[in-house]
Amino acid sequence: MIARKKILTDEMVAKIESLAPRYPNRRALTLPALHVVYAELRHVPLEAVVEIAELLGLAPAEVQDTLSFYQFFPQEKPCGQVRAFVCRSVSCALRGGDQLLEHLCHANGIEPYGTTPDGRLTIEPAECLGACDFAPCILANDDLLASMTPEAAQAELEKPRGRAT
């Protein structure tokens, strides 16, 4: 048998297990586990789904079913180091949200949901980010980019950006 490299590291497993006492069953750990893996890898490959299922005592299909519903966890490849959600809902749209999205995609040479070839930036349309007082706005990793113009947004997205949560 060929030894397979595990996707879930000991640290990831420990982090997931540390949350277990919060819930009366292990299935409720599905979303937290997906978030733990996503936070490290910036995606959740199918192998990780299988390993999460094993850890939680579920069928891989159950975890995959949940994951696919949310359309939030990229599976094929990691999203960019900066994942920018550009709001296109009503309050932002009234203040130029659609144009902002179009400008940013054009300026970075990608389609919506695309990632730049250097893996730096992913741009995704998003529904209301709950920051309509700062429309049009963008959530770039953990940072809210408030009341953006296309030029200011491009300058912001060129900055390196970490993640705290």
């Binding site: 809902s89 009503v90 309050s91 529904e127 209301c128 709950g130 920051a131 309509c132 007082d133």
Partner: peptide, 11 residues
Amino acid sequence: DESEPGTFNNR
């Protein structure tokens, strides 16, 4: 979950 477009008071 506050996701209704236009809403941000919970935040």
